[in-house]
Design a binder for these strands. Sequence first.
DNA 1: AATTCGTGGTT
DNA 2: TAACCAAGAAT
Length: 298
Amino acid sequence: MSVPASPLHAPVLAWYDRCARDLPWRAPDRTPWGVLVSEAMLQQTPVARVLPVWREWAARWPTPAALAAEAPGEAVRAWGRLGYPRRALRLHAAAVAVVERHGGEVPAAYDDLRALPGVGAYTAAAVASFAFSGRHAVVDTNVRRVQARAVTGAEHPAPAQTAAELRVAEALVPDDAGQAARWAVAVMELGALVCTARAPRCADCPVRALCAWQLAGRPAYDGPPRRGQAYAGTDRQVRGLLLGVLREAEGPVPRAALDAVWPRDPLQRARALDGLVADGLVEPLEGGAYALPGAPRR
DNA sequence: AATTCGTGGTT
DNA sequence: TAACCAAGAAT
């Protein structure tokens, strides 16, 4: 029997039991691989856009071995418009690594997960917690925001994660591993549904009475300015346009078809294409055509 | 440690 | 409408 270490635990856990979304990667029949796929897709991409793609992947590649047997370009193609397509490449590489290093089973240990391509501190902790009920501090943008408000009393967390934040998160992890896993998913869900960045639904918050930000009178954010993400006209936009052509094409695409999507700046276009090739997202073929990456040669 | 890396919905 | 924001990772 574990004693709650924080008054936040009970209300947040009760709220989660009542209000949690019914997401397929939380279903009883989920697999660790399905959890890992969901976490990769959810890095910087909203749940609503991940759902249909995740279902497609779950049906097509139900195991790491199934994905590992495909050409990496198929993962990039099936990634669709989720954004940051390097994630698709890394997830494919992670599947290969799981087959080679772990006999095709997604590992449960944090360090083994963290060593997989595309798996950073957050994702390793999330998979270890959600798929294996491991005891870890799972700190994403939602958790950072909930902590900033409920614990620290600030409207927004600092632009980058601090050591102090991690200490707060670790101090909040319940002693019992099963409870820790429930807490991890619950506090994250609270940040996603109630303690949102722009217009928090404080009237629906289970810890409103305990929230340091509420008790301080909801002071406005006074930290360093948070930079936005420019997109129009950037290399990222050009890369997206180029890769979009290759994704939609059945086979190799002539150079001219790529040139057509960004005619106004050949220099930038070349830089973007070179970058895609350097990242392994695009393969130059003999004869001047381009394609999504095929099976690695050995 | 600061940048780079997509895409689209919301306000 | 332009800005903001979304379960980050790698370098």
